[in-house]
């Protein structure tokens, strides 16, 4: 009797396993556009618990003139897709060298930002109403650097999503009127969920900005965009961001993101 049950159970067990597998694989297929964008948001802006990188920003205007900003950036995530801390220590150019900049990002309200100007020992909180304003005069906005929460936009798969084997193709439109874009098309890598290309259109349907991931490397097991480019089609300018000496999970704590370290850069994390 017991043996009989076992024999009878085997196919059921197999069937159950199979059905579980198929459910899993169909779940993979059945990611909604919203879910893809959330995964992408996490892969791009929340990789690891924290991280440090040296950043070189080349801003090239329409006449080909180049300006360069170099800084060290520290990041700590408090919640996945939620609160984050950013810390930036400027190295060049000369007029901003040794300045520090700190952001307490909170997707549910305005970010809190502070700048420290060492030549006058001044900590200044910065009014942060406009997340679309340019970051250090580059073609990246503050929001391009620290991420726009996917819930602020409606997302759907574009027609070409079916035929594109490499990336998810997603159409997004802002829920509320937004200066950054009216419509956005994102190409999200199907494996790493990193954004490979993003096209930003204004309300008239004109392409205003374009993001491309130029180089992707695996660092500490995490796929990372190490060279990224933002082209501003309105201004015919572009900014190339090269990240080096990237490290994840270096043990940053919330204490680093306070006035004390704004005035005293945490050198041990900035080598």
């Amino acid at each position: 009797m017991p043996n009989y049950i076992k024999v009878m159970q085997l196919p059921i067990l197999l069937l159950t396993l199979l059905s579980m597998l198929s459910v899993k694989s169909s779940a993979q297929d059945a990611l909604t556009a919203q879910e893809v964008m959330m995964k992408s948001h996490l892969a791009y802006y929340y990789s690891g618990n924290d991280g440090v990188s040296n950043v070189k920003m080349s801003i090239i205007n329409k006449r080909g003139k180049e300006r360069v900003r170099e800084f060290v950036m520290l990041r700590l995530d408090k919640e996945e897709a939620g609160k984050q801390f950013y810390y930036i220590y400027f190295k060049t150019p000369s007029d901003v060298s040794r300045m520090t900049f700190m952001v307490h990002k909170d997707p549910s309200e305005n970010d809190a930002r502070w700048i420290y100007i060492p030549s006058i020992d001044l900590i200044k909180p910065i009014s942060a109403d406009d997340k679309n304003s340019s970051f250090v005069n580059s073609d990246f906005s503050y929001e391009d650097i620290s991420g726009r929460h996917p819930d602020e936009d409606n997302h759907s798969f574009a027609e070409s999503n079916e035929t594109d084997s490499m990336s998810f193709v997603i159409e997004s439109s802002s829920k509320e009127k937004y200066k950054g874009f009216a419509r956005k098309v994102s190409y999200i890598d199907r494996n790493s969920f990193l954004p490979l290309r993003e096209l930003y259109y204004n309300r008239k349907g004109v392409l205003i900005k374009e993001f491309t991931a130029e180089e992707i490397e695996e660092i500490d097991g995490i796929k990372t965009i190490t060279v990224r480019k933002m082209t501003n089609h309105k201004k015919s300018s572009h900014t190339l961001v090269t990240m080096s000496s990237i490290k994840y999970n270096i043990g940053l704590t919330e204490e680093i993101f306070t006035e004390r370290y704004l005035k005293n850069p945490p050198r041990k994390f900035m080598k």
Binding site: S127, A128, D130, S133, K179
Partner: peptide
């Protein structure tokens, strides 16, 4: 009170 009125205007 200080506020950024427009992008680039404070």
């Amino acid at each position: 009170y200080e506020k950024q009125i427009l992008s680039g205007l404070t």
